[in-house]
Design a protein around this nucleic acid. Structure first.
Length: 427
DNA sequence: TGACGTCAAGATCCG
DNA sequence: CGGATCTTGACGTCA
């Protein structure tokens, strides 16, 4: 297959990154001072910079920026011209994003344009202004979008839709340039949102999971709704964006899965003809994005990077799976990326295996043993001898190795999922 | 009035 | 005292 064809589908992720350790900061509104605010914004802009640099390094080209970037950014709590104060930082971010990353933002369910309360609508407008302000500071063009839900029903859907349309049509062009609307999982299905699009001209984001949960009465194949959404996008809006997620087994309806099942995802793509930018909504964030991008782009470099991160975590859970991936990566001219992804996914679901955990711990210990003190060597041996076989002491050994990693830093191990589980249930 | 969802702050508990 | 664990806050709608 041609590259052109494979790149028909791009994937991206939202807000947080499982492999960037610095976190956004905030504080309680009552504790906010100018000094504190300045400090928080400064930190958060540097966190965003780290994520963008990560995306560039991994060649991830689609990314949603968290609304938490500027805490209380739309709340009018204090008078402080942060956009101006941090213009140097924004300029730097703008350069990093330029022509490389199609970024977007997404105010949550609490930004409601069609509320019956004038006060709520006013604050929703402020919130939209805040999002667009950030977008523009980061160099947004019309291709960079702010995704919004329609809002509440208030017992009368036609009136609620009418209110949304009226407010939307009164928005400044600077906001309309970026605004797009999405079907949600309880109130506004894809047909409703398409109707609203007709009356506002706003492009529509099709969300597959919301759609499954909240089907329109009119029964049409999913593909047709998705394509109808596609027709709401003008050339200047850029490529059609959709949201894609999978139901987390055994959790509340609509809860996002820990990782994307790649076979299910590929099946979903199979039925589609038009190029798409697909925003993944998934707990493991960048990790699923990297995995799917590896498959879509047949990206050997990505496969090797992911393998480096996976190998000890896999070895500790299933030696056969570990061996199979090693084999698959031997002949670099003919790599079965789908199978590799499938093995990653299978193994992630497994608990650490009593037998294989010893082996993996020994492999990892190999990185430290030349530098460790005699006491540390003894402690490690004692832990290993006391029986790593039950899952609990396995965890104790990993914890000890994590301590060693802190003391004896090692870039390769620091990226390993052996130390950075994404599925907390499995630790 | 509490559930809903999401994240980290803030509080508290444990050794 | 540091680390682990529990609770709260911020948002609006709906039952």
């Amino acid at each position: 297959m041609k590259n052109e064809e494979l790149r028909k589908f791009r994937v991206g992720y939202a807000c947080l990154n499982s492999d960037v350790k610095t976190k956004y900061r905030t504080c309680r509104q009552r504790n906010l001072t100018i000094e504190k605010w300045h400090e928080l914004i400064k930190i958060n802009l540097s966190v965003l910079k780290e994520m963008i640099e990560y995306n560039r390094k991994m060649k991830l080209s689609m990314y949603r920026i968290s609304s938490d970037l500027i805490p209380f950014g739309s709340a009018d709590v204090l008078d402080y011209d942060w956009a101006n104060i941090f213009q140097k930082e924004f300029a730097e971010l703008r350069e990093l994003l330029k022509n490389r990353i199609r970024f977007s933002m997404h105010p949550g369910q609490y930004t409601v344009l069609n509320s019956l309360s004038a006060d709520v609508v006013e604050r929703a407008l402020k919130d939209l202004e805040y999002h667009v302000k950030v977008m523009r500071l980061l160099g947004a063009t019309r291709k960079n979008k702010v995704v919004l839900h329609i809002g509440g029903i208030y017992g009368d859907k036609p009136s609620a839709i009418k209110r949304f349309v009226e407010v939307a049509n009164g928005l400044d062009q600077s906001i309309l340039d970026h605004l797009i609307i999405e079907n949600d999982d309880r109130s506004y299905n894809i047909k409703d949102v398409l109707e609203i699009s007709e009356q506002t001209g706003l492009p529509v984001v099709f969300d597959n999971l919301h759609h499954e949960i909240n089907l329109p009465e009119e029964s049409r194949p999913m593909k047709e709704w998705l394509e109808a959404a596609g027709r709401t996008w003008q050339a200047e809006d850029g490529r059609q964006i959709i949201h894609y997620s999978q139901q987390a087994e055994g959790k509340r309806t609509g809860a996002h899965s820990a990782t994307i099942d790649s076979q299910v995802f590929l099946q979903f793509l199979d039925s589609l003809d038009e190029p798409l930018d697909i925003m993944l909504e998934v707990k493991d964030k960048n990790r699923s994005t990297e995995k799917l991008q590896m498959i879509l782009n047949k990206d050997l470099k990505m496969a090797e990077r992911l393998w480096a991160r996976q190998k000890y975590s896999m070895l500790s859970r299933s030696q056969p799976n570990y061996q199979e991936v090693r084999q698959l990566l031997k002949d670099k001219t003919n790599v079965d990326f789908k199978r590799i992804a499938e093995l990653f996914e299978q193994t992630e679901k497994l608990a650490h295996s009593p037998g294989d955990a010893v082996n993996a711990a020994d492999h990892v210990w190999g990185y430290f043993k030349k530098q460790t003190t005699d006491k540390e060597k003894n402690d490690f041996r004692k832990l290993m001898d006391s029986g790593i076989s039950d899952s609990d002491s396995g965890r104790i050994v990993r914890k000890y190795l994590t301590k060693m990693l802190k003391k004896y830093p090692n870039g390769y191990l620091e990226e390993s999922y052996y130390f950075n589980e994404s599925l907390s249930d499995n630790i």
